[in-house]
Amino acid sequence: MIQTVFQKPDSLASVITHYCPGCTHGVIHRMVGEVLDELGVRDRTVGVSPVGCSVLAYNYFETDFHEASHGRAPAVATGIKRARPDLIVFAYQGDGDLASIGMGEIIHCANRGEKITVIFVNNAIYGMTGGQMAPTTMPNQVATTCPMGRDVEQAGWPIRMAELVSALRTPAYVARASSHSPLHTVQAKAMIRRAFQYQVEGTCFSMVEVLSTCPTNWGLPPNEADRWLEEQMMPYYPLGVFKTPDGRDRAPKPLPADE
């Protein structure tokens, strides 16, 4: 007798994605799909896809979806959730979408404490448009619009979104995980599950930043891309939980006395 021990989550559609070989969007989609299945919320979930590599995510999930304009997914998700608080609403966004053109939307959505979940995929580059510099591109990392490498004097330092969002006073769940190795995906899945759990309970806004590889635009084979993520990105983008809804405000330390 054959026993099924591993299968596609019901929340994922039976289609072939357009993602490049070695890209971890598929892994992240799967983790989200598994969580929706496990929480039993697929039939009341509405996703919001961004503009970027995951623009076609609405084809890959077996849930209702809205396709947002570039960067506006948190605003669209706000509209859906405010109209129908009973729905489970998640935005799936990349780094150009969320941390560049959509910076205003994500900050204010988080600050209002919208009870939605944001999955933020950070691969340090613009993928769909062909490898341009992203707000999360690493110092000296080469991209098509910084062919000599990111010059932090000109472009500033990469933006750490999990840290930025977690600085807001409004209660939230904010975490950063990675998707480049099986061990890290176990941690990532636990964070994604917790993020959705908070929404199911109506607790708070939640955002999980997931570090991801882009072998195509990084110009690396997948295995080297995994290594590059670990060596170059992880020291700058530390993994962990930055904020939980029960967390206190981070009060400033008193000024040092005159010396």
């Binding site: 947002a68 605003a75 669209v76 706000t78």
Partner: peptide, 26 residues
Amino acid sequence: GTFVQAESEVAASNMLYGAAGTGERV
């Protein structure tokens, strides 16, 4: 009902887009 003061007209109109997609009057 629900009143949301958005951070910009850009956000407000996209909230409208999201909410309208649920079939509610917005």
